[in-house]
C-alpha cells in the first residue's frame, strides 16, 4: 500500500504509432529540449513480443518516460522486460526512471556504464537547469545488462538483435534489429532532417555506416527524424554531410588553417539541407577538427 502511494500521478499516454506490426514509435520534435516538450526530442519506442515488451530509448525526462509507459499499457499488459538505451545522451536515457518499478534489465553497449558514470551527473544537472520542474523524477539509471558485440533478446516468438558498434556517433552506440518486421532502430547512428551531431568519431561513424548498409532491413527508425522504408538509401544524406565535413576540414588542416577558419567555412554547402544546422554544425567542426588534426 505504501508503494502504491509512491507511484506518480497518471501521465497522459504518448501518441505513439505502430510503424510495423508490434513496433511502436513516438517521433521526437526537431528542436532543443525544453520544459514544454519535457526533453522529448528523440525518437523513442517499444516492441511487443508474445511474452514481454522491450523499450528502445526511454525519452528525455522521467515525465516523458511515464508517458511512454502509459502508451505501452494502452497496447499491452505484458511485462516490460527490457529498457534498451542506444547511447548515453539525455534525450535517450532520462526516461529510464519511469520504468524502475517494472524491474526490467536496462540494456546498453559495454562502454555505456563508463559513459553514464562520466557524464550522467553532468547531464542531469544540465537537464534540471534546462527543464526546471519538468525534469522532476529524472535520474541516472545505469545499465544492468551490457552488450560487447551482439546480444539477442527474446520477447517471446520475437528476437531483437542488439549490435554494439565501434566509435561513431558516440563511443558506445547500440542498434536494435527486429527480425520479425525487418525494422532497424539505428539510434543516433542515423539522423534525418535534423543535422547529425558528432560526439564520438567522424571517421569511425563513416565506417560504421558502411557496416550498417549490409543490414537487410525493411525499414529504419532513425534516432531523430522520420522512419523510412528507403533503406539503405536513407543513409545517403547523412553520409554526404559527414564526408563533406571530413573532406573540407582535412583541406583546411592541409592548408595550415585554424579551427576558427574551419568553423567559418566547412560544410556551408549543406546548410540548407538540415534543420538546426547553425546550432550544431560549428560544434561538429570543432569536434571533428580535433580528431582529424592527429592524422
Amino acid at each position: 500500500m505504501i508503494l502504491a502511494l509512491a507511484v506518480p500521478a497518471r501521465a497522459e499516454p504518448l501518441p505513439v504509432r505502430e510503424v510495423a506490426k508490434g513496433v511502436y514509435l513516438y517521433q521526437g520534435a526537431h528542436g532543443e529540449a525544453t520544459a514544454e516538450n519535457h526533453g522529448g526530442i528523440a525518437n523513442i519506442g517499444f516492441v511487443v513480443g508474445d511474452a514481454s515488451v522491450a523499450v528502445i530509448d526511454s525519452g528525455g525526462s522521467a515525465h516523458q518516460g511515464r508517458r511512454l509507459h502509459e502508451a505501452i499499457r494502452q497496447v499491452t499488459d505484458l511485462p516490460i522486460r527490457y529498457v534498451i538505451n542506444t547511447h548515453v545522451h539525455p534525450d535517450h536515457i532520462f526516461g529510464n526512471a519511469a520504468f524502475l518499478a517494472d524491474e526490467p534489465d536496462f540494456v546498453g553497449h559495454a562502454k555505456l556504464p563508463r559513459a553514464v558514470a562520466a557524464r550522467g551527473a553532468y547531464y542531469l544537472e544540465g537537464l534540471k537547469q534546462r527543464l526546471g520542474s519538468a525534469s522532476e523524477g529524472s535520474e541516472v539509471v545505469p545499465p544492468s545488462l551490457t552488450v560487447a558485440e551482439r546480444l539477442d533478446l527474446d520477447l517471446g516468438d520475437r528476437v531483437l538483435r542488439l549490435t554494439a558498434h565501434r566509435t561513431a556517433h558516440t563511443d558506445h552506440d547500440l542498434s536494435v534489429y527486429d527480425a520479425v518486421t525487418g525494422t532497424l532502430f539505428a539510434g543516433d547512428l542515423l539522423f534525418r532532417e535534423r543535422v547529425p551531431v558528432v560526439d564520438g568519431s567522424l571517421k569511425g561513424w563513416l565506417n560504421v555506416m558502411s557496416e550498417l548498409r549490409a543490414i537487410e532491413a525493411r525499414r529504419v527508425v532513425p534516432g531523430h527524424g522520420t522512419p523510412t522504408a528507403d533503406w539503405p538509401a536513407a543513409l545517403d544524406r547523412q553520409e554526404s554531410y559527414l564526408r563533406l565535413l571530413r573532406d573540407e576540414i582535412r583541406a583546411v588542416i592541409r592548408d595550415g588553417g585554424t579551427m576558427e577558419q574551419a568553423v567559418a567555412s566547412v560544410a556551408a554547402a549543406e546548410r540548407d539541407a538540415w534543420l538546426l544546422f547553425d546550432d550544431y554544425n560549428p560544434r561538429n567542426v570543432v569536434t571533428a577538427f580535433t580528431e582529424l588534426e592527429w592524422e
Binding site: Y122, D171, S201, G256
Partner: peptide, 27 residues
C-alpha cells in the same frame, strides 16, 4: 558554460592510448 566540468574525451580509449604523444605542424 560548463567547459571545465564537461566530460572528458569523446573516445576515451583512444585518448589514453595516445597520452604524451606530440605532433608538430610546420608551415
Amino acid at each position: 558554460s560548463g567547459g571545465c566540468s564537461a566530460p572528458a574525451s569523446k573516445d576515451q580509449d583512444k585518448a589514453m592510448a595516445r597520452l604524451g604523444r606530440m605532433k608538430l605542424k610546420q608551415s
